[in-house]
Design a protein around this nucleic acid. Structure first.
Lengths: 336, 336
DNA sequence: TTTATTTACGAAACCGTTTTCGTTCCCTTT
DNA sequence: AAAGGGAACGAAAACGGTTTCGTAAATAAA
């Protein structure tokens, strides 16, 4: 039997309301009574029941972070950024993993509607339609901020990078390094950011009068094995690409593995640039040229935005759209 | 205003208890009534209030995973392992990050006592004393399973690897490759697993009649910069080590960075073996020889154990101690 | 001195479920 | 026909806090 506010009240000959107020440091209670209550609570090692207070107060002091996975440098850094601000606000951050499974994501969001969290920061998983009804509904039900991977048509705050430009820059960089047959590794489902990166890629090709080939645009899936064989096939073509844009971290590293396996020398035979926030991209063999997003900063910004909404600061645009700059970090994988 | 069971009851001219039972598919309720309730609930998009039911039922259907950080391949994989079993049990897993801050860890555990979660899986942060009172108390308060980083003297289930043996193996491997001046990079606080790894290291040195030097045993901290300069100092000594055991993933990769900066050629000038579950350790330059723990499997096992406790399966030893094997993956960083 | 105001506390309602007992009503038994 | 036994549902008490609204005493204002 856990110790409750009622027990404290009885033992101290006080009303439960008095104890409750004393514990929350209400002005209605005298210093002396507060002291008695605090002391006794401490002594009994009283811990308030979360569910009782949340039920009554209609707030949980929790925010959710919903991400596809955590074994990705972008997400793990972003989570740290989010935590850094949640902490100052006295909020807990709860991490939910979708494993790129839209069904799971929907289940999680639906579950939130029960009041589990006060707000949500989300980077949607593949397959989330641009105007997913569930995301839309959720955004109307409670504060929701997209970061990095958003649903375009859902009205909510968003923290993004300029993915079109990033795709363009990555591709242009490869072209500058002499590549002419550049492949783009994307995901199978229609994620907006991947689409934009691909459009940037295609636009760069166009600017340089290079024909974009369907065969060089891969739609990778969720399974490592499947992706392995897809890229394998790509790299075994007669007109094998001489450059790769890996629009997801794991696709870039997987390309490395394939080059190893196929005895292709990265940078000489084929140049690679990957989207990644890996702290040790420079330790890879060869060091990987990356488009690096300000992951921590994006998390921080998104969380700040969320708290602005929660605290209902006026003067704030409700559905802000913030674009943070990402940068091309040139390394050996694209050396001439 | 959210829609509640009470509204459904009123609209359908039923008692709240009837609706509640219908929703939980109780045998007391006729099929017809169930159908009506379900249909109407669906129509109104009813979502049960989590706090109300948890308050009443005294269970949350949540389990917590408490880890120092998530930007570490071991932890991110372990989390996936945990999730894989939680999912089959209909439980949510909530990830808490301590950032290796014991104060924060204590606050989190204390918070749990309010009933936030039904059970906890924890890998303690540095500085957690062997018999930390808070962990001890927590273990008595609710189901708690340690994985990887445990508090030795706290009575609770544990899923571990043989860290002494791993430290020994790593060191012996370096000796076999010709190293004689081997450094051990550990953490500053007394984590049991690090201690065991270090003892394995020292034991291997002893077996080979190599004197262990205090100066070669580094106690790294939490800040990257600090660790950088610590290792920097180590590698600039006149009698610079010819081998390094990195007992934490980030210490191994940091050593790489330092070798780069100091123009030391890894494997020729200095050999490195690191504890890591990085999927792309083989992509590093040079590929990193690792002690790899079965991270996913450990997560899975720990979670299974926790659910056994939650379900109170008899015939199960309450405080099992399971040791899983880790393996030395030989790669280029320790080539002769 | 009377009236207003403040201070410090208590009683009770409430948050939205679950759960325990009843209580009907109807159908078997004997 | 009386007793017994389900089947289907309702009333009300929890769960452990918070919050509103009183109220008595103490203090200040008139």
């Amino acid at each position: 039997m856990s110790i409750t506010i009622r027990k404290i009240a009885k033992d101290l000959q006080l009303a439960v309301s008095t104890v409750s107020k004393a514990l929350s440091d209400s002005y209605e209670i005298s210093a002396e009574t507060k002291r008695r209550v605090l002391e006794y609570a401490e002594k009994l090692d009283y811990v308030p029941n979360l569910y009782a207070s949340s039920l009554k107060q209609r707030k949980s002091h929790n925010i959710a972070v919903v991400v596809p996975e955590v074994a990705d440098s972008f997400f793990s850094s972003a989570i740290n950024g989010i935590e850094s601000v949640a902490q100052t606000k006295g909020y807990h951050v709860i991490v939910y993993l979708t494993h790129e499974d839209l069904k799971k994501e929907e289940a999680i969001l639906r579950d939130f509607r029960g009041g589990r969290v006060d707000g949500v920061l989300i980077s949607v998983s593949g397959g989330a339609k641009r105007n997913s009804p569930i995301h839309d509904l959720s955004a109307k039900k409670f504060p929701l901020v997209f970061f990095d991977r958003a649903c375009e048509e859902v009205e909510a705050a968003k923290v993004l990078t300029d993915d079109f430009e990033s795709g363009y820059k990555a591709t242009q960089h490869l072209i500058d390094r002499g590549c002419r047959k550049i492949a783009f590794l994307g995901t199978s489902e229609d994620l907006e950011i991947i689409d934009l990166r691909r459009m940037g890629y295609e636009s760069a090709l166009l600017s340089n009068k290079i024909k974009s080939k369907k065969k060089f645009i891969l739609r990778c899936g969720n399974s490592e094995e499947e992706n392995y064989s897809l890229i394998h096939k790509l790299l075994c073509r007669k007109d094998r690409p001489d450059g790769i844009v890996g629009s997801i971290e794991k696709l870039a590293t997987l390309s490395y593995t394939l080059c190893y396996d196929l005895k292709l020398k990265i940078s000489r035979d084929i140049k690679i640039v990957g989207f990644s926030s890996l702290p040790f991209a420079s330790l890879l063999n060869p060091s990987l040229t990356t488009i690096t997003q300000p992951a921590f900063e994006m998390g921080r910004t998104a969380a700040t935005l969320l708290f602005n909404i929660l605290e209902n600061k006026k003067g704030e645009v409700p559905n802000q759209r913030i674009i943070l700059p990402s940068s091309l970090m040139e390394r050996s994988s694209t050396k001439k």
